[in-house]
């Protein structure tokens, strides 16, 4: 039974038009397959980029937090109440006269 199934078929000859059609079909199939493969590769790549993206987001948040804490620290030490206390400690006095050039 198997021998019958795999019996070589009778060789058929195609016309020129037929051969061109087959070539076009093959090319289109290859192109379609390549596009599908490319889409799969890019999609897989993008999907795994989520980890990188999350890392960048985390770093950004960390830097923003650090930046705002530093700004708060700078504001604290440069507040007039802090500066006037320091000036008093160092013996500075308020000017009593206006000095003009």
């Amino acid at each position: 039974m198997l021998i019958v199934d795999f019996k070589p078929e009778k060789k058929q000859t195609l016309s020129l038009l037929g051969r061109i059609k087959v070539q076009v079909l093959v090319m289109l199939s290859v192109l379609a397959l390549s596009l599908v493969a490319a889409q799969l590769i890019f999609a897989a790549d993008l999907a795994t980029d989520g980890a990188k993206f999350a890392g960048i987001e985390e770093e950004l948040a960390r830097l923003e937090t650090q930046n705002s804490s530093l700004r708060v620290e700078i504001a604290k030490v440069s507040s007039l109440s802090t500066l006037s206390e320091k000036a008093k400690e160092l013996g500075f006095e308020k000017p009593q006269q206006v000095i003009t050039p």
Partner: peptide
């Protein structure tokens, strides 16, 4: 995704 990472597609 299940690990909490964003899926960019």
């Amino acid at each position: 995704d299940p690990f909490g990472l964003p899926i960019l597609v």
